[in-house]
Design a protein around this nucleic acid. Structure first.
Length: 595
RNA sequence: GGUUCCGUAGCUCAGUUGGAUAGAGCAACAGCCUUCUAAGCUGUGGGUCCCGCGUUCGAGUCGCGGCGGAAUCACCA
């Protein structure tokens, strides 16, 4: 409609003032609720053609359009805003079209689909997942769904940081202080068991440092010379040398962690197409660096370490190979980026990584660009903000880390308590109830995290976030289940409803507001894919659910006697439920049929 | 100090390519369950959109300069 109106405005200006108008100068938007009309044309930019007051110009254009375009039945001008009223006939046809669209995602397809890699999660294998990982996983998975829905080919990848000094710490502590306990003997989830020994290591290590400092050693010295640290470094060397004993311990403990992660991923409802392990890739990238050196893109220091000079790009010097020839983090990422490009020829490679690594990805792109890899423009750091507690950052030292598994369990428990308190779900089996509690709890958690702009840091208040009222996932689920209930009831009482055909329409403002929202769905999904922001969809779903709830209260749906009006309301309900379902699906939130 | 990001109601957050009187939820107060699910709906109160200057018919939105907060600036990953 907007497009047609634009044409009409162009035509009007041409006819009245004999001037050609640039498309961009014609601004059309929906009329605000408080004013009469459906669409509004902002006339200010057109004054240069009319050389007249905004009011006069609006009048002139308005009357031209009313006289030359039957879909517009009337108009009014307030200040510089020309409000056009669209005829009922047009709306009826429009509703019919909307109601006939079975898949509301079809309009979101992009013209040129791309191959996109989304890398997310990227855990370390020495600790269980925490709240920060939850944000990462939910964002990554949702991006995958949104980009796929727009017709792109999306590959979900996860790169597991399974090697290095941190995992040796857990291994060493388990060897020294453990009594051979395993996940099955202790009844502990594997990742939590390994994490326990990591914490134990840090505790003992700190104690050793304290003793050394008391004995007069300075702190840095103490950190290096503490016996536990020495042992850990020895273990890392053994690991790198492929010592069979260390390798088998490493494999065993990592397998525990993976089993634990898998459980958490499953609960979160996320998965991956390909999982990479750093133990396989940490040596890659050397060849690329050496080639870069040959081409004089990089330079060698006196101590034979290799560097990139990024000062022309406004960045710093960056080390790429140590003097002993070993690789660093950046080297690895260079290697995997090139390898993946060769394998997939991706258009985009999206890294879902916290904003603490902004600099790292800036450097990564700059180096690849310097080396002549033009596809480096397709490397996108999807940078999200930290999750903080009301007291500030989560600190493992202070035990304020919010564990992922604990939080999920807590959300589901709360869902159960709230449901039972409200006296819902009578007549369901215990198994069915548990399934519904799970969906509600997860919706509360996922929605809470996804509704905020990913770029921003967010505050997680353990007491308040477990809210099920207002702008929350459960509210949207509730709205959806209510609609389901309406249709169950309709079926029971034998009320028929025709999905596609509408011949008349009830003139009512509320419905129009709801419709305005409904038709924005494809546009919202597209914008969300463009900005890589699931939050747009989340907030949209809330607005829609809220609008529907008002509609639900203001109008009787099944109790309406006029079959045409009743059918109209049923169609709106049906379309709303479908869009809510799809919107939440894009966020990875499951919808219960009842709650 | 350099770079990047953020600053909107007491709290948590929305706010479309710059458009009309800046919106929700939570918290507070007052109403609404014999009628399709009250996890809901209606109403009241609550604002120097961090500050200043500029661009513009028009700025929460764009530009510049401050102030405040976060992240980062390793031969860690």
């Amino acid at each position: 409609m907007e497009i047609i109106l634009k044409e009409k405005v162009k035509e009007a200006v041409q006819f009245i003032y004999n001037c050609k108008v640039d498309e961009e100068l014609i601004q059309i938007q929906e009329t605000r609720k408080d004013f009469k009309g459906d669409f509004t044309i902002v006339v200010f930019p057109l004054l240069r053609f009319s050389k007249n007051t905004p009011e006069k110009t609006g009048e002139m254009i308005g009357s031209y359009i009313v006289n030359n375009f039957t879909a517009v039945s009337g108009f009014n001008v307030i200040k510089g805003f020309l409000n056009l009223e669209i005829s009922d006939k047009w709306w009826i046809d429009y509703f019919a079209l909307m109601a006939s669209e079975k898949s509301h995602l079809e309009n979101c397809q992009v013209k040129n689909p791309e191959t996109i890699l989304v890398e997310y999660s990227s855990p370390n294998t020495n600790k269980p997942l925490h709240l920060g990982h939850i944000r990462n996983n939910l964002l990554g998975f949702s991006l995958y769904r949104i980009l796929s829905a727009c017709g792109n080919k999306v590959i979900k990848t996860n790169i597991v940081n399974d090697r290095g000094i941190h995992i040796c710490k857990s291994m060493l502590a388990w060897q020294k202080f453990g009594n051979g306990e395993t996940p099955s003997s202790s009844g502990m989830k594997g990742d939590h068991l390994v994490g326990k020994y990591y914490v134990l290591f840090e505790k003992e290590y700190r104690a050793q440092i304290g003793e050394l400092v008391l004995a007069g050693v300075n702190e840095n010295e103490a950190k290096n010379s503490a016996p536990l640290m020495k042992e850990t470094r020895e273990m890392l060397l053994k690991w790198e040398a492929g010592n069979p004993e260390v390798m088998s311990l490493w494999k065993m403990m990592n397998s525990w962690v993976y089993a634990g992660f898998d459980e958490t991923y499953k609960r979160l409802g996320v998965d991956f197409d390909i999982i990479y392990y750093e133990s396989d890739t940490y040596k890659t990238g050397r060849d690329i660096v050496i080639e870069g050196l040959k081409n004089n893109v990089l330079y060698k220091n006196e101590d034979s370490s290799i560097w990139a000079d990024l000062t022309p790009e406004g960045l710093d010097q960056k080390l790429l190979l140590r003097s002993d020839g070993t690789a660093v983090y950046m080297t690895q990422d260079l290697g995997t980026a090139v390898a993946r490009y060769n394998e997939y020829k991706f258009d985009k490679n999206i890294y879902v990584v916290g904003n603490e690594q902004n600099y790292h990805f800036q450097v990564l792109r700059a180096i690849l660009k310097k080396m002549g890899y033009n596809w480096s423009d397709g490397l996108i750091h999807f940078s999200y903000g930290m999750v903080e507690l009301p007291e500030g950052r989560m600190k493992s030292r202070e035990g304020t880390i919010v564990d992922a598994d604990d939080l999920i369990t807590e959300m589901q428990e709360t869902a159960r308590e709230v449901s039972l308190e409200l006296g819902k779900l009578a007549g369901f089996s215990d198994v069915e109830k548990e399934e519904i509690f799970r969906k509600i709890g997860m919706a509360a958690l996922k929605y809470y995290i996804l509704k905020v702009d990913p770029r921003k840091n967010m505050t997680f208040n353990p007491a308040e976030s477990i809210d099920f009222n207002g702008n929350t996932g459960p509210f949207i689920q509730y709205t959806y289940t209510r609609i389901k209930s309406v249709f169950r009831k309709a079926e029971q009482t034998g009320i028929q409803f025709e999905y596609g055909r509408l011949t008349e329409v009830e003139a009512g403002i509320k419905e129009i507001e709801l419709v305005k929202l409904l038709r924005k769905f494809p546009e919202t999904v597209t914008a969300s894919a463009q900005d890589l922001s699931p939050a747009l969809i989340a907030n949209y779903c809330y607005d829609l659910a809220k609008e529907y709830n008002q509609f639900y209260h203001d109008y009787s749906i099944l109790g309406e006697n006029d079959p045409v009006v009743r059918n109209f309301r049923l169609v709106l309900s049906k379309v709303t439920s479908e869009i809510l379902y799809k919107g939440m699906w894009l966020l990875g939130v499951e919808m219960p049929e009842r709650m």
